[in-house]
Amino acid sequence: MTKRSLYALVLGCSRLGAFLANRLSEKGHSVVVIDEDEASFLLLDRNFSGFKIEGNPVETAVLHQAKIHKADIVIATTRDDNINIMCAQIARNIFKVPRVISRIFDPSLNDFNLLKDIETICPTTLTGDLMIKTILDEDKDIQ
């Protein structure tokens, strides 16, 4: 099976956003990164071959400019949960983007039932679970 090149929209050039944009671009996918702060694009690799848009990702006009209706995947990785939640819903429910992934730090917002067609990843519970596992496994060794 030949792998198809994806059109990926990364919202927020945070550490995570830049990481994803760099990796996806390296693997030959078309990537567009949107961030309000131009300086955040410094996190992108020198050979990043995608596009950068300086703008607010919750602004529909900016999403139009990024051709969101053509995106195969939208990944919301700004530092603000509410921005990610809003962008993810716009991408999924209004522009019908097939795959939408959103980072949500607050575990209590993560099970928000409006996000049903959106894949959410909560770094807090992921890290927390890992830490608990490490702590308890360590304990087992001691005993």
């Binding site: 949960d81 509410n82 939640i85």
Partner: peptide
């Protein structure tokens, strides 16, 4: 706007 949206949706659902 994004805060308003999430607060409204929580209030509603």
């Amino acid at each position: 706007d994004h805060d308003n949206l999430v607060i409204c949706q929580l209030s509603q659902t």
